[in-house]
Each structure stands twice: as C-alpha cells, then as structure tokens.
C-alpha cells in the first residue's frame, strides 16, 4: 500500500479506508506480538526519536516496544534530558534532532499544535503522540482498533465518552475517528468539563450518566486530572465520583455486552469503580496490547514511506 501522509498529526487527516487499512496492518503485526521471538527485521537500520516533552510512561513504552519489535533503533528524549530545560526552543531542539537524521520523530508535548509546529519545520516523519488538549491520534486509532477486534464493523454502534472532555486530546481525536467509522458518539461530563461549543460537535451530550449509558455498546472513561478541583471546575472528588464515576449500576443500564475502556492511567474509585476496571467487560489491557500493534503499523507506514517514494 502507498501511504500518502508525511506526518500523523491528527485523525482528521485519515479517511475511513485509511483507518481500516491501518487496522489490517495492525492485525498483521499483532501476530508478531504473540510469537515466542517477538522481533522482525522490517525497520532494521532505521531510527526513531521518542521525544516526550511531557511526562508519559505508557505511550512512550508502547512506542519503544513497537520500534524495537520492528528492529528500528529508538532514542528517547524527555524534557528533563533535553535542552528545553536550558532555555532552548522547541524549534532548535527538533532541528538538532533532525540533524542526526532520524526517519521519524514521535512527539508528546504539553502545547496544542506542537506537532504541527515541528512537522512544518522537519523533513522527517512526525507522529503526534499527544499535543496539549488537541489530539492523540495513535490513542484514538488503538481504541477503534480494539473495538474493531471485538465487533468487526463499528457502524451503528454507540459509544459513550465519559469524563473530562474539555481538557482531553483523547476525546477530541476519538470523536472525530469514531464518527468517520459510523459510530454514534455520546458524551457525559459536568458542564465545566465540556468545551463551550460542544453542541456543535458530532455527538449527543448528557449531564446524567444514567441516561447517557442506556443501551451503549462501550463506555470510554477518561482520566480525571486531580488539579481540576483547584481550577474551580469541580467541588471535590467525592462528588465527582458519586455523580460521574462509572459503576455497576450504570453498566446494568447499558447493552448486555457492553465493553469498558480507559486510556490509562486509571484513578480507581474516581472515574471508574475498581471492580469494573477488573471486570470481564474491561478492555483496558487489550487496549495496551493493541497499542503496541497499532504503533508498529504506524511506524512501519510512516518510516518506510520515503523509501517507497524513491523506488
């Protein structure tokens, strides 16, 4: 397949058929992850920089594992290790990295638009691993891939996104991708944690979780950042957990085969009850496993694009 995109900045760039072919590629790599020797030489001799200017454990490890299983050389750079703490600008940091000729830079950054900023200035591929509250395309892709593995076609399914949508790049990317895949999206959060113009988004918005959850095929919980209380957006965690935390009584109202998802890391007892996190309906660990396969697919497509062009 010919991959047309230099960078992955958000799922807005992808068509439905491109998303579906990513699922196929990820499924192919999934098989590798089940072998006793989990390594193929596909990206041997190619290198990827994992530049995480914002703390992250699971996304970084996921990309690192994905790169190593494809035999790519991966180099990690965190904010504390980089010269950003010495006052170097993002532009200079990434130009410095590019001068070492990587095939791809994976960027996690606290500022919305940061991946676009570096993609405009770099010749190598840029994969957005989360920029501010804007986008987290690899998370949205692995989430949809996980649902695709469960259900096959996603058309006509109903998915509830629950929690701090206002500040969530995961929610923004998921709303867009799920709509492209024909999913009916619902959202539930206190008004203070919804974007001001959420009514213009392609989703139904609920304040009452018991209503929101009725008949849904999956609930995607979002992590609540504990500083929202300090920001004046919530009175306290107890009230939030009682009103917007997902528990068994809500799950009883959903579709009988409902699936529960969470991008992690979870606050047990806040946005999700501990039993649900461990329940049979939970896909949380499948998401982690599928994250590696999906990121293998993405690294493969974005890092081999240039070579294919030359051929």
């Amino acid at each position: 397949m010919k991959w047309l995109h230099k960078d992955l900045l958000d799922v807005t760039q992808l068509s439905k058929s491109e998303a579906m072919s990513l699922f196929d590629t990820a499924a192919h790599f999934q098989e590798i992850n089940q072998r006793p020797v989990k390594k193929v030489p596909t990206l041997k001799g190619r290198s990827v920089v994992l530049f995480f200017a914002e703390p992250s454990t699971r996304t970084k490890v996921s990309f690192d594992v994905a790169a190593k299983r494809l035999s790519a050389d991966s180099f990690s750079l965190s904010k504390s290790m980089s010269s950003l703490t010495k006052g170097e600008t993002l532009k200079d940091t990434v130009l410095t990295l590019q001068a070492m000729a990587p095939d791809c830079i994976v960027l996690r950054h606290w500022s919305s638009g940061a991946s676009k900023f570096i993609a405009d200035r770099l010749d190598c591929a840029v994969i957005n691993a989360g920029d501010g509250r804007h986008a987290h395309p690899t998370q949205a892709l692995l989430d949809s891939f996980t649902m695709f593995q469960e259900w096959g076609d996603l058309t006509g399914k109903t998915v509830l996104i629950l929690g701090d949508i206002k500040h969530s790049r995961v929610a923004r990317s998921n709303v867009i991708l799920l709509n492209k895949l024909g999913v009916n999206v619902r959202m539930c959060a206190p008004r203070t944690l919804l974007p001001h113009t959420v009514r213009s988004w392609p989703c139904e918005v609920y304040s009452d979780l018991s209503e929101a959850v009725k008949g849904v095929n999956a609930v995607m919980c979002l992590r609540l950042q504990l500083e929202r209380q300090k920001d004046g957006l919530l009175p306290n965690l107890r009230e939030y957990a009682q009103t917007f935390g997902l528990s068994q009584r809500h799950i009883d109202l959903a579709d009988k085969d409902v699936r529960i998802m969470h991008p992690g890391p979870m606050n047990r007892g806040v946005e999700i009850s501990s039993d649900l996190a461990d329940s049979a309906q939970s896909l949380v660990l499948d998401q982690v496993a599928n994250g590696v396969s999906m990121r293998m697919a993405l690294l493969f497509l974005y890092m081999t694009r240039k070579g294919m062009e030359e051929e």
């Binding site: 920029d131 501010g132 509250r133 974007p195 213009s200």
Partner: peptide
C-alpha cells in the same frame, strides 16, 4: 477566541 475553532484546536479561549 473561545468558540468552535478554539475548542477544536484544544486551545484555551477568551470569550
């Protein structure tokens, strides 16, 4: 501006 564009871009908007 706080509005549809800012909300889509994930930027803190001024109403």
């Amino acid at each position: 501006n706080e509005g549809e564009v800012g909300d889509r871009l994930g930027l803190n908007g001024q109403p």
